[in-house]
């Protein structure tokens, strides 16, 4: 117990560079594995949260762009969505890394872009924007006609019509699918350190450490279940949080009516 507390104080923030520098070398205990893999989760949560929050706004813009009447904006949004949804995220990471690497050779400005915290974040941000954009576009298409007609009847137009009627309805309809997207985004954050992006000074994410232990002990039956445990907890937290927001979005509707619940929608997995 004492040992474990010490291990936690040594390694709890190892993944962001605080605490003991050397990773354990031999006699890997269960406590060390739990602490280090948990420490790696900081990166997964960072990538997922920032990409999701930033991606939300770009996704709204892309969805509106795809529904736009102007040909050029529509085509641009369609190509953006096609580019990021049609190719594997894994390849996108690789391409972005080497792209930034060659830019870095010419302009010193691109120095931080080859590090995972910024470069990978940009890829994830664009990727989730494309997926979410498609979801929002679908929701935009299925807004009940009565809602927009009612907005017209009230004399709302332009921005206030969008802000007060269209946008909330779009979110309400898209929410179950968006929850799904959030879960899968967090899952795909584990890819980051397996592509070109280097884990500088062995500061990696949860899967990086799990893989480290599996390589060292040649026993996959301990670290991967620990990782699975962390991710299942994370998934449950996401479902709970998104469910709360979803309830708030639906709060004006009759409560005993069947609301779209956050469940798995096979059409929209990534």
């Amino acid at each position: 117990m004492e040992d474990c507390l010490q291990t936690i104080s040594q390694y709890a923030f190892r993944s962001i560079g605080f605490g003991e520098r050397l990773l354990p070398r031999s006699d890997y205990t269960l406590c060390q594995q739990f602490t280090l893999i948990g420490s790696g989760m900081i990166w997964n949560i960072y990538f997922g949260t920032v990409a999701l929050l930033a991606g939300f706004f770009l996704a709204t813009a892309v969805a509106l762009g795809k529904a736009s009447n102007t040909r050029i904006i529509r085509k641009l949004s369609e190509w953006f969505i096609f580019l990021f949804r049609g190719s594997p995220l894994f390849i996108q990471f690789f391409f972005a890394y080497f792209f930034f690497l060659s830019l870095k050779g010419q302009y010193a400005f691109f120095d931080p872009f080859t590090a995972a915290w910024l470069g990978a974040l940009i890829v994830l941000f664009l990727n989730t924007s494309a997926y979410t954009g498609e979801i929002f576009y679908g929701a935009l298409q299925s807004i009940p006609k009565g809602d927009t007609e009612a907005a017209d009847a009230y004399g709302l137009s332009g921005w206030s019509r969008f802000r007060r009627v269209i946008w909330p309805t779009m979110l309400r309809l898209a929410w179950p699918a968006y929850t799904n997207e959030a879960i899968f985004l967090f899952h795909s954050t584990t890819l980051v350190f397996f592509t070109g992006f280097p884990a500088w000074q062995q500061r990696g994410d949860a899967l990086y450490y799990a893989n480290f232990f599996a390589d060292k002990t040649f026993n996959p039956f301990v670290p991967y279940p620990i990782l699975a445990f962390y991710f299942i907890v994370l998934t449950l937290v996401i479902i709970a949080l998104m469910g709360r927001i979803g309830r708030r979005l639906n709060s004006h509707l009759p409560q005993d009516a069947k609301r779209p619940r956050a469940r798995f929608l096979p059409q929209i997995i990534r």
Partner: peptide, 14 residues
């Protein structure tokens, strides 16, 4: 519930 890549790494050794 678990990232698929973790499964890939796990099952190959397992």
């Amino acid at each position: 519930g678990v990232p698929d890549i973790a499964f890939f790494l796990f099952f190959v050794i397992a």
